[in-house]
Design a protein around this nucleic acid. Structure first.
Lengths: 168, 168
DNA sequence: GAATGTTATATAACATGTTATATATTTGCG
DNA sequence: CGCAAATATATAACATGTTATATAACATTC
C-alpha cells in the first residue's frame, strides 16, 4: 500500500486535496441523482437553483452566482437549453445580454428535486460532516473571504503579512 | 451583485464548493511557482514528491499515491518524462510495470523546491487557514475516511445510518 | 453623429480529470 | 505445456474547468 502524498503533505497540497474531495463528493452526488431517475448532471443543478432563487439571470450573472467563468456558464446553459430545462431571450433593454429563465419543464424539475433529491443529498452530506470537529461551512466561507481579501501569492513571503502565519 | 448560490445552498453544494476552492488555491499556488521562476505545473508536484519520499514507483502506485486514476497518472508522468524530470524503465521482474524515478534534473528541482517554493506555499496556506475555527486537515481526513467507509449514496436515505455509528 | 472604447456573450484552444477499452505481460490451472 | 484469466499500462472519447480572443451591442467623446 502506497502512502497518500497529498494527505501527507498537508497544507502544501490543500488545493489538490479540496479538489479531489470535491470531485469525489460530486461523483457520489451524481449517483444519488441517477438512482432517483433524474436526467441531469450534478454540476447543472446550481444553475437551475440560482434561477429558481433569483428569477431570470443573464449568462454573466449565472457565472457569478455559480462561481465559474463566463465561458463555462455559456456552455452549461447551452446544455440546459438543449435539454429543455431553461429558455433564453435577449434582455429588452440591452440586446447583448441574454436572460435565462426556467422553462415549465425546468420548474417541474426544480420542484421535484426540492421535494426529493436535494433533501436526500443534504441529509447524506450532513450525515457525512455533521459532527465534525468544527463548522466546516463557516471555515470554507472564511477561506473564500480571506482569499478574496488577500490572494495567496500576497501571503507567500515567509515573514507573511499576518502574524498568524507563524502560529502554525 | 448576485448571490453566491453554491455558498447559499450549503451542504447541498459542498462538492462544488470544495472543488471550486481547490481550483482557486491551486491556481494561486501556480502563481507562487511561476514567480519563483520554476517551469512546472502545480499538479505535477505531488508526483515528484511521492517519488522523492518513497523512491521509484510504478504508474499504478503513483496514481494511488496522488489519488487520481491510472490514465491521469500515465499522462502526467508522460509530461514529466518530456520535461526530463523523471526517468522510466520496465521493472526487472515484471515487464508490464514501469518504474518511474527522479532524474538528476528532477532531484535538483525537488531539492530546490523543498528549500524555497514549498515552504512559501505552506506558509501562505497556513496564513490563510491557520487560525480557522477547527482543524481543517483533520476534518478533511475524517471526510475522506468516512466516504471510504460508507459512500454518500449509502447515506442518502433520509432515515439513514449515522456517521457516528459507522465510521468512527 | 461617427469614431472609439467598453461590455456581454460566443468560440477556440488547452488542461486535467474521468470511464471504457485495447494491448502486452504474467499467473494459474487442466 | 498451453491456454484462459488477471494485471499493468496505454489510448480513446468525453466532461468540465480555464485563458485568450472574436463579435455584436451599447456608451462616450469630440
Amino acid at each position: 500500500m502506497v502512502e497518500d502524498v497529498v494527505r501527507t503533505l498537508g497544507l502544501l497540497c490543500l488545493g489538490s486535496r479540496l479538489r479531489r474531495i470535491g470531485e469525489r463528493l460530486q461523483a457520489d452526488t451524481q449517483q444519488v441523482i441517477d438512482e432517483a431517475g433524474v436526467a441531469i448532471q450534478a454540476g447543472q443543478y446550481p444553475f437551475l437553483a440560482a434561477i429558481d432563487r433569483a428569477g431570470p439571470l443573464t449568462i454573466g450573472e449565472l457565472a457569478q452566482a455559480v462561481g465559474i467563468t463566463q465561458p463555462g456558464a455559456t456552455r452549461t446553459i447551452g446544455q440546459l437549453l438543449e435539454l429543455g430545462f431553461v429558455d433564453m431571450q435577449p434582455a429588452p433593454d440591452d440586446q447583448r445580454r441574454r436572460l435565462v429563465s426556467l422553462s415549465d419543464k425546468g420548474k417541474e424539475l426544480v420542484d421535484h428535486s426540492k421535494a426529493t433529491i436535494w433533501p436526500r443529498v443534504a441529509a447524506a452530506v450532513a450525515d457525512l460532516c455533521g459532527d465534525l470537529d468544527g463548522p466546516i461551512l463557516e471555515q470554507l466561507a472564511a477561506i473564500e473571504d480571506r482569499l478574496a481579501a488577500l490572494p495567496l501569492i500576497r501571503r507567500s513571503t515567509v515573514t507573511g503579512p499576518h502574524a498568524l502565519s507563524n502560529a502554525q
